[in-house]
Amino acid sequence: MIDQSSFSRTEATRQILQFLHEELLNGSGPVTLQADTDLLASGTVDSLGVMRLVAFLEAAFAVTIAHEDVTMENFLNASAIAALICERQEGAL
C-alpha cells in the first residue's frame, strides 16, 4: 500500500513499469520499456497479463478499477495507466 499524500503520477508510472518488468516479463522483456512504450503492440501484456495488472493496481494503489475503465486507451502504456490511477484516486478522496 502506498501513502496517498506522497503519491504522484511519476511515482505511479515508476511502480507500474517495475511491475511490468519484474512480474509480467519476469525481468526478461525488452530492457527499453519506457513510460510511453506501447504495451499492446509490443505484446508485453496478454489477456492474462491484463487481469494480473488490474489486480496489482487495485492492491498497490488502493483504487477500484471498473470493467469499463479496462480499455485499450487506458492501458496503452504505463503513463496512461498512471493517469487512470490518479484520476480514480482523486475521485475517491
Binding site: 503492440a41 501484456v45 489477456s47 491484463v50 485499450m72 486507451e73 492501458f75
Partner: peptide, 12 residues
C-alpha cells in the same frame, strides 16, 4: 488480438 484483451473495448 490486442483489442480482444479488453472486453470493454471489444464490446465498443
Amino acid at each position: 488480438a490486442p483489442v480482444l484483451r479488453f472486453p470493454a473495448s471489444f464490446a465498443l
